[in-house]
Amino acid sequence: MTPILADLTVGSVVAEATFSLTRDSLVRYAGASGDFNPIHYRDDIAQSVGLSGVLAHGMLTMGLAVQPVVDWAGDPARVVDYQVRFTRPVFVDATDGAIVTVVAKVGALDPDADVARIDLTVTFNDATVLGKAQARVNLA
């Protein structure tokens, strides 16, 4: 069922999820997206540009972070606008991987357009990795 805008309250949590990333996830995203930058699969190259090791594609983090919103809305087509700022890297350890958590809250409501702005808090290692992460969801 599609959520009803009139039932929503600014600040309330609509979805939460935890994602477990491994190096396999990065290889899979590289292939699917065509982004083969080696900093996403080779520690030696990541370290040569001053990083502590392999990091997730920012677009992978952006892509998974909206999925709890899609499932809450019921249809990916309802996400009509989505933006993020990349603020911190998600390092993915070769053995332990990385845990990314997403909390989605109602940020603003536009009853005239029947659009809810859902604000995402996306966290890795107790720090947020995306800033101004906002999805606009058409509930008409």
């Binding site: 994602f19 996830s25 899979r28 995203y29 292939g31 699917a32 997206s33 992978l60 892509g63 998974l64 999925q67 899609v70 499932d71 249809d75 990916p76 087509a77």
Partner: peptide, 17 residues
């Protein structure tokens, strides 16, 4: 199949994807 491949890569599990 590209849509399905990309969907799996971003953890999209919605049947519409």
């Amino acid at each position: 199949e590209k849509v399905r491949e990309f969907s799996r890569a971003v953890f999209a599990a919605n049947p519409i994807n």
